[in-house]
Design a binder for these strands. Structure first.
Lengths: 221, 221
DNA sequence: TAGATTGTTAATCGATTAACAATC
DNA sequence: TAGATTGTTAATCGATTAACAATC
């Protein structure tokens, strides 16, 4: 069960497996074979088995996979069996949207604070969470368990915010600013670059008429 | 200049080139070699040259690339030289955040309408755009040029909304609902699955201490 | 011209798919 | 037991990197 050097292609797919298994679970499906799942997900059965076997043998020959068991195990692999405390830096539209998105809590992600520099939003209440001043960031991190910081500040301020967060001890950054953060190796990050996603969509749209073969399969992240 | 069957790995990287070139342009940099750019972007020079040469020879031997020219050309490839009219379906937090994000307009994406089923938000004014009833969706699309529809409705409603949009003639969908839409081949899409991004971050965080080699390079989209 | 750097072909590497023996 | 389906090894495919001749 000791995971090492799993390829990032595999890790990218795990949440999607998790999502499909969750849906099957909701439908009270007990077992599923890699073949059945591959049809639903539009991938090869081979890929599913290869991916899962990076983490262990979760199936049973002649039977397939127990949906609930596999769902739980992938959740565990993704770290969803623990609570992750999230702070949001930047209480603009996107920051507020994230704070309001209660659905994350179902997966163990708890937004515990929001920070901003703008006096006009400091003090504002978002789903019971009061927007704090950036001046309180350091002390808050020191005094509370914070696992993940989401950066939703303008591009120009992102590098400085990231540097501060690192200095205050944050180990995981969810970056929404349209820039590449330069982080020390022990700090992990995920980028959500909305503008880039929109540009790719624009590319596909522009080329859709010419080239129907590739672009069609709407592809994600 | 006729693009065909470009690999999606290449297309994913184009907006990032565009971003870096834009920053160079802001700094009044005139020319750059693939080697210099590769250092800045932390990729290989070979990859940059290979990627660009899918679309044509934009450089000059012994000189490198003219920043402004290359920026313009990549913009053209991505379809940023035209206006794309965007509607947003779902005026919740995320939909409103997107509508408020004026930065997209700089790239030619104009939000021209927002729709919702909730009477409480219908009529609300967001940056000069009034939230409309979903009942007006069909007629609006018929009477206006709409290129892209962003779906920011709850998961349960996404499939129906997508089917309606397709029926009304929409050819590009920017999907934020945590589900895979089933679309006809002539309709292109891009998914932004925030929950999946957050799960990957959780995975990296959990494995960061054990495995410092892979996870460190915060990887995007 | 000499030096630099592209465009492009060839080599390598990694990821996906196919095949099948193991086994429930 | 016979049938089904996994786990895993081998084959294929595609993407990345290296090398270098072309050329500005």
């Amino acid at each position: 069960m000791y995971e090492r050097g799993i390829s990032s292609a595999v890790i990218k797919r795990l949440p999607r497996y998790y999502r499909y298994l969750g849906e099957l679970l909701e439908k009270d499906v007990i077992r599923i074979s890699s073949k059945e799942l591959s049809v639903k997900m539009n991938v090869t059965a081979s890929q599913i088995r290869q991916d899962l076997n990076n983490f262990g043998g979760f199936g049973q020959q002649g039977y397939g996979y127990n949906v609930e068991y596999l769902y739980t195990e992938i959740g565990r692999i993704l770290g969803l069996d623990r609570q992750n405390h999230v702070i949001i830096i930047g209480a603009g539209n996107l920051g507020q949207a994230l704070a309001n998105y209660a659905d994350f809590e179902r997966r163990g992600f708890v937004v515990c604070a929001i920070f901003d520099v703008n006096p006009e939003v400091i003090g504002k209440d978002i789903r019971g969470i009061v927007v704090r001043s950036m001046e309180d960031l350091q002390s808050f991190i020191a005094e509370n368990k914070v696992d993940i910081a989401a950066i939703t500040v303008p591009r120009q301020n992102a590098a400085k915010v990231a540097a501060d967060l690192v200095q205050y001890g944050i180990k995981a950054i969810w970056n929404f600013a349209p820039t590449d953060l330069h982080l020390p190796p022990e700090v992990v990050s995920e980028n959500v670059h909305l503008a880039e996603s929109l540009m790719r969509l624009s590319y596909k749209l522009k080329n859709a008429s010419e080239d129907l073969s590739e672009a069609e399969r709407g592809d994600g992240d």
